[in-house]
């Protein structure tokens, strides 16, 4: 595989052909913010937090979906980008209910961390606070739509890694919801294997282990790297 050289934030970096700007930048220690991307899963470009400026292109591009090219000049952290990102996070916070002080994931949440990192000390938009359902029908896990940001990590990990494809997204616009099977309660899903992968990859308090109280939930994503590496190296094929 051939190598590409490009400039990111004034720094010359090398990347493999076919690599995304996002992963090449991370490999070189430039950490572009993200929510829907998770190493080991396919990318969908849903959250738009990883948008970057590419010289010669008018439109901002999602770095998790854009491949590197020779002599590309990329900026990942301009005032305009920071303002965009801040607004995106504010939109996410305003769209559903994110009162962190009473959330199971308070203190260990990717959305919360990002908000802090981007200096979101208040939300300029009027919060919508829709009263959405909490699904506790599953024996071990719970789903709180109020905290879901529709990143679809759960959908992808279940489909691509576990192979069950229990999750999907139904509805449009503000009525979009993640669903299990054809919209049955999670506890009645015939395809769910109760592996818990979705719970661990979910960046927010939307998916949690039952019994956890406020600020009590912690996520462990170690399994994903392990499974993906093993699969790449074909460790399971005798």
């Amino acid at each position: 595989m051939s190598v590409r050289t490009l400039e990111v934030d004034g720094k010359m970096i090398t990347a493999l052909e076919g690599q995304t700007i996002f992963s090449a930048a991370w490999d070189s220690g430039i950490h572009i913010p993200r929510l829907c991307h998770l190493g080991g899963l396919s990318d969908v470009g849903a959250c738009r937090l990883c948008l970057v400026e590419i010289e010669g292109q008018k439109r901002l591009q999602p770095s998790c979906m854009t491949k590197v090219a020779e002599d590309m000049v990329v900026r990942t952290n301009t005032p305009a980008l920071r303002a965009h990102r801040r607004l995106i996070v504010e939109l996410l916070l305003a769209e559903r209910n994110h009162v962190c002080s009473v959330c199971v994931l308070n203190g260990a949440c990717e959305l919360q961390d990002l908000a802090a990192q981007l200096g979101v000390d208040h939300v300029r938009l009027r919060p919508q606070y829709p009263k959405l359902e909490v699904d506790l029908s599953h024996d071990r896990f719970g789903l709180d739509h109020n905290r879901c940001i529709l990143c679809t990590r759960c959908v992808r990990v279940c489909d691509e890694v576990e192979g069950a494809h229990t999750w999907d997204v139904a509805g449009r616009g503000k009525n979009s919801r993640v669903i299990t099977d054809l919209g049955e309660p999670w506890g009645e899903s015939a395809s769910c294997t109760s592996c818990g992968k979705c719970v661990q990859v979910c960046p927010t308090g939307a998916l949690f282990s039952k019994g956890k109280t406020v600020a009590d939930m912690r996520k462990d994503r170690g399994f994903l790297r392990y499974i993906v590496t093993a699969r790449e190296k074909k460790l399971w094929i005798a």
């Binding site: 199971v104 506790l136 719970g142 406020v214």
Partner: peptide, 14 residues
Amino acid sequence: EGRPFQEMPGLMAR
């Protein structure tokens, strides 16, 4: 209303 009962102690503390 509509919240898991396990959350109540934490909710109450706040």
